[in-house]
Amino acid sequence: MRFHIGYALLTVALLAIELLIALFVRDAIVRPYVGDALAVMLVYAGLRAVTTLRVVPAALVAFGVAVVIEFSQYFHLLDHIGLGGNRWARIILGSGFDPQDFVAYAGGAILVLLVERYRRASRAAAGTRTVSPSSESSSTI
């Protein structure tokens, strides 16, 4: 296990944005699609903050988490476990199945991969060495 402060700060920022969207945005684009793409990025950043998962595996796990949560909505999991009326559970885990959400999740995962590829290319172009997860400047927990 490790702790990477940059990804941890990104996780907190994305969580704040997601909560603001969930609580205050009522539209047909930002809340359902941008919010879903950001959710995948949030899980990705959280994984990278506390694990040694590399970019592609972390992005795949984040996408997988989103897919599992979406299917839990299809099966009304929150209702079955007694949390259907809990506002925070519905904000965090969602409340309605929409197959179009899978596109937003894939978009979030693809955006993560593109940003990470850009970051790596930028470091290489600047003449800095690329950093492996085991040698990144982070604290081991």
Score class of each variant (00 low, 15 high):
Met1Ala: 11
Met1Thr: 07
Met1Arg: 06
Arg2Asp: 09
Phe3Val: 13
Phe3Gly: 07
Phe3Met: 10
Phe3Trp: 14
Ala8Asn: 01
Ala8Glu: 01
Leu10Met: 13
Leu10Thr: 08
Val12Pro: 00
Ala13Pro: 02
Ala13Asp: 01
Ala13Asn: 02
Ala13Val: 11
Ala13Lys: 00
Leu15Tyr: 02
Ile17Arg: 02
Glu18Asp: 13
Leu19Met: 15
Leu19Asn: 07
Leu19Trp: 14
Leu20Glu: 08
Leu20Cys: 11
Leu20Lys: 04
Ala22Thr: 12
Phe24Trp: 13
Phe24Cys: 05
Arg26Asn: 12
Ala28Arg: 12
Ile29Gln: 13
Ile29Ala: 14
Ile29Phe: 15
Ile29Asn: 11
Val30Cys: 09
Val30Arg: 08
Val30Leu: 14
Pro32Ile: 10
Tyr33Trp: 15
Ala37Cys: 10
Ala37Leu: 04
Leu38Gln: 03
Met41Arg: 01
Met41Gln: 06
Met41Trp: 01
Leu42Asp: 02
Val43Thr: 12
Val43Gly: 04
Val43Ile: 15
Tyr44Phe: 15
Ala45Gly: 09
Gly46Val: 01
Leu47His: 03
Arg48Glu: 05
Thr51Met: 05
Thr52Gly: 15
Leu53Thr: 04
Val55Asn: 06
Val56Glu: 09
Ala58Val: 03
Ala59His: 02
Ala59Gly: 05
Val61Asp: 01
Phe63Lys: 01
Gly64Pro: 01
Gly64Thr: 00
Val65Trp: 00
Ala66Cys: 15
Val67Gln: 08
Ile69Lys: 04
Glu70Ser: 06
Glu70Phe: 01
Glu70Gly: 05
Glu70Gln: 07
Phe71Lys: 03
Phe71Val: 14
Ser72Trp: 05
Gln73Thr: 09
Gln73Gly: 08
Tyr74Gly: 04
Tyr74Ser: 04
Tyr74Asn: 03
Phe75Tyr: 14
Phe75His: 10
Phe75Arg: 09
Leu77His: 02
Leu78Gln: 06
Leu78Ser: 07
Asp79Lys: 07
His80Asn: 10
His80Trp: 07
His80Tyr: 04
His80Met: 07
His80Glu: 10
His80Arg: 14
Gly82Gln: 05
Gly84Glu: 06
Gly84Phe: 06
Gly85Thr: 09
Gly85Asn: 11
Asn86Cys: 13
Trp88Tyr: 15
Ile91Glu: 08
Ile92Leu: 15
Ile92Asn: 05
Ile92Arg: 06
Ile92Gln: 03
Ser95Ile: 01
Gly96Asn: 10
Phe97Gln: 03
Phe97Ser: 03
Phe97Trp: 06
Asp98Ile: 08
Gln100Leu: 15
Phe102Val: 12
Val103Phe: 14
Val103Met: 12
Ala104Gly: 09
Tyr105Thr: 05
Tyr105Cys: 08
Tyr105Glu: 08
Ala106Cys: 05
Ala106Ile: 13
Gly108Phe: 00
Leu111Phe: 13
Val112Cys: 02
Val112Asn: 01
Leu113Asn: 03
Val115Ser: 06
Glu116Phe: 10
Glu116Thr: 12
Tyr118Asn: 07
Tyr118Gly: 10
Arg119Val: 11
Ala121Leu: 15
Ala124Thr: 12
Ala125Trp: 09
Gly127Arg: 08
Thr128Ala: 14
Thr130Glu: 15
Val131His: 04
Ser132Leu: 13
Ser132Lys: 10
Ser134Trp: 13
Ser134Cys: 09
Ser135Ile: 10
Glu136His: 08
Glu136Ile: 05
Ser137Gly: 11
Ser137Phe: 10
Ser137Val: 11
Ser139Pro: 00
Thr140Glu: 10
Thr140Asn: 09
